[in-house]
Nucleic acid binder design. Structure first.
Lengths: 142, 142
DNA sequence: GTGGTTCCCATTGACGCCCATGGTGGCCCA
DNA sequence: TGGGCCACCATGGGCGTCAATGGGAACCAC
């Protein structure tokens, strides 16, 4: 099963690096992903990461629209302006840049959360809160 | 991946220069772009930049239209009248001219935003605001 | 000349690449 | 089943390189 599952919280070191959980790195390795596409989530204060094929999927969505429309322009503002390629160092760590910090509120610890075909970086408290919130709403439904 | 991605904010120095993020310069170098074509975005208060091939693409679009139509006329006004060539100095900086300042409202800092096949210069607060607005409107994406 | 550019060079801090260490869990073997 | 060994993962830090920024001086145009 090649999915991103579960969640874990790791510490950011003095140089601003954090280890990606080995479980997630294993999924990436199986898909032979070298470079990660990271984007600022469209709903939550979290940064999502996956292989470059996700970006291509997003770009196909834009491609189906009038390239000069305000709609396509705004969408590109999010997936291009709000996205970036990242790569891990030799030890499987990534640098927590301002691009990530400003959007998520992350300071010294990161919660990695699996989301199936991608995973996300959260500020630990924000993740806690979002998760219990989702649980509440879910029980209301059923 | 040869795309303009992500966003970053740099300071304008006393001479009115600003460094183009190295990530973007790398993309330009890979395409062997020497001279940049800059134009005013059709929707937002931002100045876009890319290699000259983008101008040629625009011109082909005009060429395929009735040369006496109001559409072709307006288009030419935007891409020719609203466009200019620029080049970077030895350190990869560009001069922030009045052409750029007047249209974008940029004063002392510039936010560079990747847009796939080109990148843009924004007044930092305006970018921030536009992006978060786009995010609110487009929650349907993911 | 005067103002605005362009071409160099200097500085400082950030980042990439490597190697080191400690802690934990799994596994093997007696 | 208890002990011990080993592999792997998270984390720390050194050091060389590069990017972003600042500023001097030559150069050009009006």
């Amino acid at each position: 099963m090649n999915r991103f599952l579960s969640h874990a919280t790791n510490r950011i070191d003095a140089k601003g690096r954090v280890s990606v959980p080995s479980m997630f790195r294993a999924v990436l390795a199986r898909s032979a992903v070298e470079e990660l596409y990271a984007w600022q989530d469209f709903v939550f204060p979290a940064v999502s990461m996956a292989g470059p094929e996700v970006l291509e999927r997003f770009e196909r969505m834009i491609g189906s629209q009038d390239p000069f429309s305000a709609e396509a322009n705004k969408m590109s503002l999010l997936i291009h302006g709000g996205g970036v390629f990242m790569k891990l160092d030799g030890e499987g760590r990534l640098l927590v840049t301002d691009f990530i910090r400003d959007f998520t509120g992350i300071t010294d610890r990161v919660t990695f959360a699996g989301r199936g075909d991608h995973f996300q970086l959260w500020e630990p408290a924000a993740f806690e809160q979002m998760q219990s919130q989702a649980r509440k709403e879910r029980t209301a439904i059923s």
